[in-house]
């Protein structure tokens, strides 16, 4: 049962990644400041005894190892714990996670909808004017920072022409600007990938065979060539989705999007250990899960690695 072995391997891998990431995050955040002092920074009459009491209440007087194992034990029993300031971590994540996923998926959809047709067109008309323009635009897209594009889009569509909301998540229109921003950024890379992969499959012998059979160019390109190019495209998109979830932080800040990125940034700012540890763990698990899903989909589209 190679598939079972594969799944077990991946599961072990996921556990190791999560342990490593949470351990590192829990350790690093404790180096950056004491939440008890941060909490009481506004008031002037705080004694050392008050601070100790706060630390005891938050469980911070215990050793690091003890604190970490408590956190792990709670997670394993399904309890994400309490934020230092904002109540149940679970409730906070339940609100933030769907918005982040929604934004990530919407961005990928925008990028796929742009890069696949453009990439195919560029490959089929290799060396033509359209191919040149697509390649130059892609280079431009790769060269400027994503938050800058976000700000430009806000200026254009929320300030100059106030047709779309600039920030927050209040209606479905709110997602258009952030998703377009990330979508365009991703397209810059993806269009190149699609183009190269298509060029490679289009020059393969089985494509010539398909043409020699009398098939129309449409069938040759969209069935025979694209299906093969899709193998590497899907792999890449999957890995990209993982990176994307991590990379959403900045865009969420620019658009004040109530997602996991915003949540973890706030947690860092407030030294909210339980919240930060939980958000980071969930992001890590999600990235591993996406990679696993990609491997499984890969088997579906490539019969050569499909398990008999």
């Amino acid at each position: 049962m190679p598939i079972l072995r594969f799944l077990i391997q991946r599961l072990l891998q996921a556990v190791l990644v999560t342990i490593a990431v949470t351990l590192f995050v829990a350790f690093a955040i404790r180096l950056t400041g004491d939440p008890a002092i941060m909490m009481t920074a506004q008031s002037s009459s705080v004694t050392e005894a008050d601070l100790d009491r706060i630390r005891e209440a938050l469980g911070l007087n215990q050793s690091f190892i003890k604190q970490y194992f408590d956190f792990v034990r709670n997670i394993l029993s399904g309890d994400l714990g309490e934020s230092f300031f904002r109540g149940s971590v679970r409730d906070l994540i339940a609100l933030a996670l769907p918005s982040t996923l929604l934004l990530a998926v919407a961005s990928m959809v925008v990028s796929i909808a742009l890069s696949i047709p453009l990439g195919i067109y560029a490959a089929v008309h290799k060396g033509g004017a359209a191919d040149q323009i697509i390649r130059v635009l892609s280079l431009v897209g790769l060269s400027f920072p994503n938050f800058w594009l976000g700000i430009m889009l806000v200026l254009m569509f929320s300030i100059t022409f106030p047709i779309l909301p600039a920030s927050g998540f209040s209606s479905w229109q709110s997602i258009l600007l952030p998703a377009t921003t990330i979508g365009i950024i991703l397209t810059a890379t993806n269009v190149r990938l699609v183009r190269t992969q298509m060029l490679e499959t289009l020059s393969s012998q089985y494509v010539m065979v398909a043409r020699a059979k009398g098939l129309s160019e449409k069938t040759v390109i969209y069935k025979h060539a694209l299906r093969n190019a899709a193998i590497s495209i899907v792999t890449f998109l999957g890995l990209q989705f993982g990176n994307l979830i991590g990379g959403l932080v900045i865009i969420e800040l620019v658009f004040n999007w109530p997602g996991m990125g915003t949540l973890s940034i706030e947690a860092i700012a407030q030294r909210d250990y339980p919240l930060l540890q939980a958000t980071v763990s969930i992001l890590a698990i999600m990235i591993v899960a996406v990679n696993l899903a990609v491997d499984l989909v890969y088997g579906l589209i490539d019969p050569r690695i499909r398990v008999a």
């Binding site: 012998q205 089985y206 010539m208 020699a212 025979h224 299906r227 093969n228 589209i301 490539d302 019969p303």
Partner: peptide, 15 residues
């Protein structure tokens, strides 16, 4: 119709 030289790459691997 035509048969090509390289049988290993003449058939589309995904169909």
């Amino acid at each position: 119709s035509m048969i090509f030289q390289e049988p290993m790459t003449s058939l589309n691997p995904v169909f």
